[in-house]
Design a protein around this nucleic acid. Structure first.
Lengths: 206, 206, 206, 206
DNA sequence: CATGAATGAGGTTTCATTCAT
DNA sequence: AATGAATGAAACCTCATTCAT
């Protein structure tokens, strides 16, 4: 025998399991999801999951890690060209809004919120790699705007939260309230108008 | 104690249990919280909880209901005097921010988010009684501002989300991220600056 | 204080409790009946039962004892006049049939059958005081009939079971099968015809 | 495959559990029997029972169903040849008596009686498949006897109960009273003499 | 005599996890 | 690599029983 099962393989299996787990975890919550159901949805036996993941908790971590990984790189690449900052902020919001609409981001956010207390490393991972990446980047942009005279002088650390918060709301709206009957929220329309509002609010002219 | 004093405060019991449950539910999540721990924290035996609540689920509902009830009435009473709308919006935000800082609102929000899928009536209750109360009220104010020429003509239904979203972020910051080590976020400072930004963004002049 | 609660009092209470208990025990079985329901049906609090009965088991015993007591005396008094035995046997059957129709006898029988293994003294009490009274009495009659030449010579110990068994069947029919939808069985008609059949079967003539 | 021999008899498991359950249910009653004891007696863990049975109730149903199933087919096949009816009735009684002596029929009957109220479908199953099969068959025989002049004209529906009742008594004697010390009852001797009595009682001659 | 409040002990059921095949 | 079978540990919930009032 070749020691133990390797954690991940280029195989498709782990991905399928993660996919199934994400679906169920975000639907029912982590504790309330039975590993057996994850297995069924992934087309495997319960025991097979243990060939790929140490633990139920390890699976949870993999779900979050895996699904967030891609986004981070993507957002990071949204470089900041020289010139006025406003269009970059607008574009950033639109990118996040697109993520809210057509990725599992809303489910991941909900999952992180739900499980963060019981699995602090998951919360911390998200805090470091998502929040800790996106907020400072946007904050830097705003500060650049202030420095260049494009924006008024305000507290950039707070402003960045004013900027991004509606995307959090949109994500939770989608993962939490739409499933129980709330009328859908158009994340991109919200992003567009919000960018407009905030940029006006920030602008030095007037 | 004052003479024979009330050895048991029979009417206080449900409240004590709810208090204990809120604490633990929002820390560990609903499923992961053992009723026995709720009982211990409330100073009762496991079985005693069933004297007051039908079910673990009934307890969850009571926790949400009870804790939200008060707030609703409070916010509702925040009438809207005649005259310019901006100060009213600012005041509304400050009220919510105060709630974020010194009530269990952040925990409740996290709880609702976490359990909404498994207990849809809880989510729906929140949707109807909290979101469904506050958002329309604020929306009406914004529309009044538009009608009076105080604000530009924008989509009020989206604007209200731009307005309120940072308070959601602040609440979750407090209940989710601060406990795992994030630096605190001053909800009231955020509310103040956000009110400023948004009102400028909405304003017709310029 | 006057030591503990006396077991029974001329009061009406114990009787009401026993009545309620009989009803529920025979409906749901002893284990499956909650003392709380007995109390409710008797119009008392759960705790009050313990003023009259030591135990749930003690209550069961009282139920059986109490309800059977009367019958025994009654049957016992069915003396055996001199002369032919057949009419006496017929009358005995008719008496039992009447008991099946208009007393709780069927329920008691069912209860004894159900609980005899778990509470052997109840079974034994019934065996000694009911079966052990009625069967020998009837057996003696049959033996008298044989001795007098009225009946053929058969095994009286078995014959007495042939005689009485349909009344057992009738009782169980009523307490077990009628409640779940079986068509009613006329215990007295059965007794009448059965007496006829058996007496013919026993008779020496022919 | 025949070689490596079956270390576990996967198909035997349900049967073993049912066997164990029948034993304990009829000894202690259904409610009073702990699933853990059933498991221990079957050589399994408590949880393993749930691999084979949905429920404690499902196990009860299986016990009754399984154990009765065989008998029914057996009795059903006891065809009725042409010719006089009396020997057929006698044979029928002897068959039942044999079942009382060397099968679990007495335990099943006791179990059905005990649990019929709480689990009406079990009672009804027995009513339909056992009582509803055997009684009409015997009744038809008696009616044939009446029609052919072999028997007097009596109420066949009642007569069939006169015929069969002692077997019920014998069964309950065995499952209820013998275990608590009653002297054994020879079911077959009772059947033989009872057949004799009843057939005489029914006969037209005399 | 009577009860509302409380609890300890226990039962059913679930589920993550293991292991022989 | 994969699984069917099995289980230990725990969770929810119930209920007979007690006790202060």
């Amino acid at each position: 025998m070749v020691t133990r099962a390797r954690k991940r393989r280029p195989d498709a299996r782990p991905g399928e399991i993660i996919e199934a787990a994400l679906e169920l975890f975000s639907q029912r919550g982590f504790s309330a999801t039975r590993l057996e159901d994850v297995a069924a949805r992934a087309g495997l036996s319960k025991a097979a999951i243990y060939l790929y993941f140490e633990d139920k908790t390890a699976l949870l971590k993999a779900v979050v890690q895996e699904t967030i990984g891609a986004k981070i790189a993507q957002v990071r690449s949204a470089a900041s060209p020289a010139g006025p900052v406003s269009p970059v902020l607008r574009q950033l919001l639109m990118m996040v809004a697109a993520g809210v609409r057509n990725t599992r981001l809303p489910d991941i956010i909900k999952l992180v919120i739900s499980e963060s207390r019981a699995h602090p490393d998951i919360g911390r991972h998200y805090l470091d790699n998502v929040i800790g990446q996106v907020l400072p980047m946007a904050q830097a942009l705003i500060e650049r705007g202030i420095a260049s005279g494009e924006f008024r002088s305000i507290d950039a650390r707070l402003a960045v939260k004013s900027l991004i918060a509606p995307m959090l709301l949109a994500a939770l709206w989608r993962s939490v309230f739409e499933p129980i009957g709330a009328e859908p929220l158009d994340a991109e329309a919200l992003a567009a108008q919000h960018a407009d509002l905030i940029i006006r609010g920030l602008s030095a002219n007037g």
